[in-house]
Write a protein that binds this DNA or RNA. Structure first.
Lengths: 226, 226
DNA sequence: TCAATGCTTCGACTACCATCGAAGTATGAA
DNA sequence: TTCATACTTCGATGGTAGTCGAAGCATTGA
């Protein structure tokens, strides 16, 4: 056995179906009680309690007591991202139980993935950019075209500062509800920041869902026609 | 409860320590044989074979046959990325394997690895041989010096027949309980055989543990002082 | 043809863990 | 105080998966 991070520990935590169901339920972002999570997972409260303490000990969940309830939620954003990544991978392998993606329609429509836009809107945005030849596909990689550069500068995004960073400007990120790629990288982040700054959309609190305003919907459709 | 990609399936694949070790070993990018992977994971070939077919069925690995060897490697780049992501997460949580290796103290002290001596005693033996300049370290490889050759012949090991074989005489093998190298190769095998033949040590049955007799302990310490 | 090597399959064993009933603890309400 | 709710802990059970020995199959080399 070599040195290195213990992926087996995390794997075994996620590997139990009951625990995986609870984690999936918690990915909507809301905090849930053991009773709720037990029904999500189809197990009794005692069993759920045992699972939850293991997940907490493993650093995946935190709990807070409130009256006689205990609320569990994902420990940090990082946990949600790690799970999202796993789900994307699983979905790409056709490892679906029933219907991929979050149950919550709001999450399915638009949500934060890492720091960029995911969900139906995220996929549509990338499709539209490619169709307009502002982003080019080269194998698994994406590249911003000259037209694309002009376009994002017109939107008020500082291309020079994106270029300066070591991070890739455009990257694909597999969307686990849509099973298709959306736009990640520093440009993905800059675009989401733009939407939020312009007031076109805002994050739901305690959730990774993003809600577009009416004017935001319109602006988005104009910018990224289908 | 039933929607969403099946992260439990992947989790359980990664969740077994033996499989996690194999995957970690394969993250270097090279294709490895079942035999190699078995030693990496510290399990027998049979067990490794069973794990490998599960990993292949799960889409994490592919194999190709080449002569009488089978080479396993990560199925696609995506798999490596997913694992890297997991490792990054695990590392960020400080989830490093705190106590690697077998629980059983006897196994930790001395055991068979492949066909040579591993565990604390295995590491000590190699250290001692290097300190006595009977084995030379050259990068990842080991070489028997002239002094070493004389020494092992004095012990009654037939150097000529070792030389004849195609197998390397000295090889390093990473010790999964000690996290350091011990001596493998035909010399490693010959030395273990010597210990067993002289009655200094014997294999516990139904285990890979090796138990040294009192006289064997003494002889070992004389031969390989710390 | 025979022997050696590399690997898989089969069968049996064992250890672990998820599971749930029952009992115990904590909080809040009547 | 007494009861109800929410949850945890304990103990027992059962199923499953990891493990290895033995045997079988395939390839290579002599």
């Amino acid at each position: 056995m070599k040195e290195g991070p213990d992926i087996a520990l995390i794997g075994s935590l996620i590997g139990d179906p009951a625990r995986a169901n609870m984690l999936t339920a918690l990915m909507a972002g809301r905090a849930l009680t053991p009773t709720e999570l037990a029904t999500h997972a189809g197990i009794t409260l005692q069993t759920a309690s045992s699972h939850l303490s293991k997940l907490e000990a493993g650093g995946l969940l935190t709990q807070r007591k409130q009256g006689r309830h205990r609320y569990y939620q994902l420990a940090e954003d990082e946990v949600g991202l790690m799970l999202e990544n796993l789900m994307g991978f699983a979905a790409s392998r056709g490892m679906n139980r029933h219907r991929p993606g979050p149950k919550d329609p709001a999450l399915r429509k638009a949500r934060v993935c890492y720091n960029h836009l995911a969900g139906d809107y995220g996929v549509r945005m990338l499709d539209s950019l490619i169709a307009a030849k502002q982003i080019e596909v080269a194998g698994d990689d994406l590249a911003l075209t000259d037209a694309g550069q002009i376009r994002i500068e017109a939107l008020g995004i500082d291309y020079a500062s994106l270029k300066k960073s070591r991070r890739p400007i455009c990257r694909t990120c597999l969307d686990w509800s849509e099973r298709r790629s959306h736009l990640a990288g520093s440009l993905g982040e800059a675009l989401l920041t733009l939407f939020l700054d312009k007031g076109w959309a805002k994050r739901e609190n305690n959730s990774r869902a993003i809600r577009f305003t009416d004017s935001g919907e319109k602006a988005f459709s104009d910018l990224f026609p289908q």
